[in-house]
């Protein structure tokens, strides 16, 4: 992790989620050790509350959400 403005730790990882593929099963949400993921209050094309990253990115890139997602809609990129 690198330190940004005001000494806030910034994650070097970025989650890219295909929100229209998400079926809202929440398996990724409970498996995240950083509690980074949350359910959106908006609906996707399927009409379910899709998964999204919280405002403050504290992802450590462990890949647990990637392994648990049955749809394979989560990909993790490293800056």
């Amino acid at each position: 992790m690198s330190k940004g403005k005001n000494n806030i730790k910034l994650s070097v990882f970025e989650l890219r989620i295909k929100k229209d593929w998400c079926k809202g099963c929440q398996l990724c949400l409970v498996s995240c050790p950083q509690k980074y993921l949350e359910l959106s209050s908006n609906l996707n094309k399927k009409g379910v509350n899709f998964i999204q990253g919280k405002e403050k990115n504290n992802c450590i890139g462990c890949g647990f959400c990637f392994f648990m997602c049955p749809e394979g809609c989560i990909e993790i990129y490293q800056k």
């Binding site: 099963c25 890949g63 990129y77």
Partner: peptide
């Protein structure tokens, strides 16, 4: 940006028909 975890190349880039939370998707 470097990819750390991405969909395997042996998987076609389409949505599955499985129900939410089905183990078939993972497997």
């Amino acid at each position: 940006m470097k990819i750390k975890f991405s969909r395997p190349k042996s998987l076609i880039d389409v949505e599955t028909h499985y129900c939410a939370g089905c183990g078939h998707g993972i497997l």
